[in-house]
Nucleic acid binder design. Structure first.
Length: 954
RNA sequence: GCAGGGGUUCCCGAGUGGUCAAAGGGGGCGGACUCAAGAUCCGCUGUCAAGCGCUUCGCAGGUUCGAAUCCUGCCCCCUGCACCA
């Protein structure tokens, strides 16, 4: 056989898999299914290391599950709508469609070069009308269900550019393109009523296997809080301020009420009064600044008295009404009941404006509240209510009592508030799914009839650099149409959908991607998505938005009757970042571009060090997958990625590490070749190697089943080679054992490095390629009791040699001249006997404290006065242990216990292997005998223990 | 501020009460092979007085016969959310 040649074998097997249609899967309820999915890429050009990592993980798992007999669905597609393509088109003066398709071609080629095992028949691109027509179709369904709503909402608006900006495009309240000031403008927008699913989205998190931090982020995002809406009637007015609070138990401490400046009541209360000008100033300031700046400025709490008072519904007391810059209009009711005694923010505000502070909760039951100069924000016992039936109540009881009283008076209710808002879906952009609605002068806003779908994006648009706004709105052919209802001339909606819409159901489409009469067939979806996608892999950056939208969509589609599935993803793995070294200034705590490597910090002038940072264009520390594949082959890149770190952990790129992984691939290759070509009849290590293979295989299956790819690869690509090499050094294996070993090993190499595995599988003479092979993995686990002994004795030999090495240095100091022999004294027979009995007694839960000494006295070895002390000492060492080391019966593993229990003959085994010991230690001679049957060299006889012989040098 | 995750040996990173001076990799050192280099293989890589020694898993305490692992407090880093009432 030839040398390892990845380029040739990888191309060869990729086309063989393709010809065999090895990865095409169909619904088959006779087999367990496994739906393996990666977050599909945005086709921005070439594949980057993050993609390679993401898909290497997924591909290994898909291949592993196929090997184990699962019916695996493993598809790929492109999230191909979005602004970057639009901007790229403007730059080159083309159409986003062309830009997108050339990028897709490039990514597809990269994916193929990596050998990922996708079912390419299911490939989809969201910008393809065969896909987005179903976006529109679903949108109409949602509309029928009442989930779609059109209402006005403030948007970031840039006058010079005549366009809406996304939040990310606003920097310091200025437009990213023209640097013009951005203002908030109310416009009609399309919404999906996701809040209707808020409770289910939150509660179902308990039952799905997402990483804890992702769940926390989603909980936070949904932000459900229980509390009460409390009505504060305005004095001398019919208006009522409705305030939301999570702490109704503090109602008796309310000393003022604060409104968001945007709150409609502000205007009504203040206009025409002496307070109006101050209020206008505050309101203008809040309206002008962007959300980003607002947070920065809000450290400075400002408020304006509006000149009017409200009534506390339970006490009838009059409290002043303020407008405050820290009250968020869109959360709760935009009005806050202020309790400076029990809310630190209100506390500071009250101090600043000299408003009274009341304490109505006590930290200690039955005592007066402590005066601390701060608000006490915890739960406490009600005091100072001035009303019967409240004082002394605590926590939830207190809250319930207040809510109860308010409801009795008709002055409030217990409510639930969410931070989650409805999904603002519309974008004033070209490169997205057109919202399928038509504006008719007489009929209003009406849906495009299903039969007229898709509403297609025009291709005859030329994008140019200077252009602003939405080209769709200026495209007469697109805009002008007839009303489907009355037939009169009408205008199409020119808003397109948020691209998150596209990615919210693609995993369902994959189940039945070629369907041209429905988004997907219900049976297919229910089969492939039963209990959700079995493994979903992607970046943490999608922890909230994408994953929440997708969960919402799945539930909404379920309610539309399209599927039975409620949760789209049963297990989520967020793969870590791929980092690479970049120059770093420790003093300034700033990372710099790789161009500055070895230079001085541009800020402080200190010498730049290095640290690893996420690969990014801005730092220039990226590594091109294509170059690496070219240099080392796809298998090596895959091995490096999988071995570098467990999927969830961050990993550092290292040139020397990938180099060493390439060497590892070659070592594997040459071991395999050696095994295939082996024609030896003798095999002194056969038994051990095959026992070891069974052991490794079992732990490999366990690791792989738990997506523990790093551990899996460590076994399959490192330990298996090391064992093979050890067997060779220890005397070699026979042809038949080689064959058996390889038959077990090569499939283990397959998930991570499939090309090499296929090549060697064929080299072994197998007719069916691994891609089509199914193994009964679960039932091939486990080792025999004979294996345990065989493995144990080999382990024992290694330890004896290691031990001999470590005492060598000591011996050298005490000996003149070269050391030429090792003297090994194994434990006395009585020790072996005692240890074996102790193990058995331990298994039977013998109480050594209680009966240990009594037992010892019955033993024959204990009768000899001369050795009595040794016996005591040894007994202690094996059943009790010392300060830091427990007795051996507790610490011996399965193998050791098996050996000791069988009263294993160490002398014979070591003598059988004397030649190897001599070679390994580079000495001339080794003597082995049982302690007491020969000279007690260096007094080692006493300290010998079963499996831990005394070792001396001469 | 709140929430989540972290801090392990030169570096990366496993490790959740005793089998732990702590897997594996990287790097470094030494050896074999070689004219040499590379590749490959073997060994070493906390410390010393070489031992059932001593010190080490962010810092300080505590629980325990025994702590990298459990508890308390503190410091630092990352991620997300943020005057959310």
């Amino acid at each position: 056989m030839t040398d390892y040649d990845p380029t040739t074998i990888e191309a060869k097997w990729q086309s063989a898999w393709n010809d065999a249609k090895a990865f095409e899967s169909e619904v088959d309820s006779s087999r367990p299914k496994f739906y393996c999915l990666e977050m599909f890429p945005y086709p921005s050009g070439q594949m980057h290391m993050g993609h390679v990592r993401n898909y290497s993980i997924g591909d290994s798992m898909a291949r592993f599950r196929r090997l184990a007999g699962y019916n695996v669905l493993y598809p790929m597609g492109y999230d191909s709508f979005g602004m970057p393509a639009e901007n790229a088109a403007k730059k080159i003066g083309g159409h986003p469609h062309d830009v997108t398709w050339s990028n897709i071609e490039s990514i597809r080629a990269d994916l193929n070069r990596m050998g990922f095992s996708y079912d390419w028949r299911r490939e989809l691109a969201t910008s393809d009308s065969t896909y987005y027509r179903w976006n529109q179709w679903i949108f109409l369904k949602f509309h029928e269900m009442g989930l779609v709503e059109r209402r006005t909402a403030p948007v970031n608006w840039c006058d010079p550019c005549d366009t809406v900006l996304a939040n990310e495009q606003v920097k310091n309240n200025r437009c990213w393109r023209c640097a013009g000031e951005v203002r908030q403008k109310d416009m009609a927008q399309w919404f999906l009523k996701m809040t209707e699913y808020a409770d289910e989205l939150l509660d179902e998190l308990e039952h799905i296997s997402f990483p804890e931090n992702v769940k926390a982020m989603q909980r936070n995002w949904i932000g459900r809080s229980h509390g009460a809406e409390i009505h504060f009637p305005i004095v001398d007015s019919d208006d009522v301020i409705k305030a939301f609070t999570t702490r109704p138990d503090t109602i008796f401490g309310v000393t003022f009420v604060t409104l968001a400046p945007e709150h409609p009541l502000c205007n009504a209360l203040v206009s025409g009064t002496e307070f109006e000008s101050d209020f206008r100033e505050l309101a203008d300031e809040c309206a002008r600044i962007s959300e980003f700046d607002r947070i920065n400025m809000l450290r400075d709490k400002k408020g304006v008295f509006l000149g009017r008072y409200a009534t506390n519904p339970l006490t009838g007391e009059k409290v002043p009404i303020y407008a405050g810059n820290f009250v968020v209009a869109s959360y709760g009711t935009g009005a806050v009941m202020a309790v400076p005694g029990h809310d630190q923010r209100d506390h500071e505000f009250a101090k600043k404006y000299e408003i009274p502070i009341l304490q109505v909760l006590s930290e200690d039951e039955g005592k007066d509240p402590k005066v601390t100069g701060r608000a006490f924000e915890g739960l406490g016992w009600m005091v100072n209510s001035g009303q019967p039936g409240f004082d002394g109540l605590y926590g939830d009881d207190a809250k319930a009592a207040v809510i109860n009283a308010l409801e009795g008076e008709g002055m409030g209710t217990g409510t639930v508030q969410y931070r989650l808002k409805d999904w603002l879906l519309s974008r004033q952009r070209f490169w997205g799914t057109p919202i399928p609605f038509i504006h008719c002068r007489s009929c209003g806003v009406i849906p495009v009839p299903e039969a007229n779908l898709p509403v297609e994006l025009p291709l005859d648009v030329v994008f140019t650099e200077g252009e602003s706004g939405n080209p769709l709105a200026n495209h007469d052919g697109f805009v002008n149409t007839n009303c489907p209802s009355c037939g009169a001339a009408a205008k199409r909606e020119t808003d397109t959908m948020d691209t998150f819409y596209d990615s919210s159901w693609y995993f369902l489409r994959f189940a039945d991607a070629l369907n041209d009469s429905a988004p997907f067939d219900k049976k297919s979806a229910d089969y492939w998505l039963e209990n959700g996608v079995d493994l979903y892999i992607g970046g943490i950056e999608h922890a909230v938005m994408h994953l929440l939208y997708a969960r919402f969509f799945t539930k909404a589609l379920r309610d539309a009757g399209l599927n039975d599935v409620s949760e789209p993803f049963s297990q989520l793995v967020c793969q870590g970042m791929v980092n690479a070294p970049t120059p770093f200034c420790a003093d300034c705590n700033v990372e710099h571009h790789v161009d500055l490597e070895g230079q001085k910090c541009p800020t402080c002038g200190g010498l730049l060090g290095s640290r690893s940072a996420k690969m990014s264009k801005s730092l220039g520390n990226t590594v091109s997958p294509e170059i690496m594949i070219e240099k080392y082959g796809a298998d090596t890149v895959r091995l490096f990625i999988l071995f570098g770190a467990n999927p969830e952990a961050g990993m550092d790129w290292s040139d020397s590490a990938i180099d060493s992984n390439y060497r590892q691939m070659r070592a594997i290759h040459s071991a395999l070749v050696q095994g295939i070509e082996n024609d030896s009849k003798l095999g002194t290590m056969d038994e051990w190697l095959l026992a070891r293979a069974r052991q490794s295989r079992s732990s490999w299956i366990d690791s792989m089943s738990n997506v523990g790819l790093r551990d899996g690869v460590m076994i399959s690509h490192f330990e298996m080679v090391a064992d093979w090499q050890w067997a060779q050094r220890r005397g070699g294996v026979s042809a038949s054992a080689s064959r058996e070993y390889l038959t077990s090993w090569i499939p283990m190499l397959y998930p991570a490095t499939p090309h090499l595995a296929e090549e060697m599988w064929k080299g072994l003479g197998m007719d069916t390629m691994l891609a089509l092979t199914v193994l009964d993995l679960e039932n091939s686990k486990g080792v025999s009791s004979r294996d345990v002994i065989v493995l144990g004795q080999e382990e024992y030999l290694r330890r004896v040699i290691d031990r001999a090495r470590s005492v060598r240095e000591l011996a050298e100091r005490h000996t003149e001249g070269d050391l030429s022999a090792v003297i090994i004294q194994t434990a006395q027979h009585w020790k072996v006997k005692l240890a074996s009995q102790a193990i058995q007694m331990h298994d039977e839960n013998f109480d050594f404290k209680e009966g240990g000494n009594k037992f010892l006295q019955t033993q024959q070895c204990f009768q000899d006065e001369e050795t009595k002390g040794d016996v005591m000492q040894f007994w202690r060492a094996i059943v009790v242990g010392q300060k830091k080391r427990r007795g051996r019966i507790h610490t011996w593993g399965e193998q050791e216990r098996a050996l000791v229990s069988s009263e294993y003959n160490e002398v014979d085994f070591l003598l059988d292997n004397a030649e190897f010991i001599v070679a390994a230690l580079e000495i001339e001679d080794v003597e082995v005998y049982r302690a007491g049957t020969g000279e007690d060299v260096a007094g080692k006889a006493r300290s010998s223990i079963p499996l831990e012989p005394g070792i001396a040098w001469r």
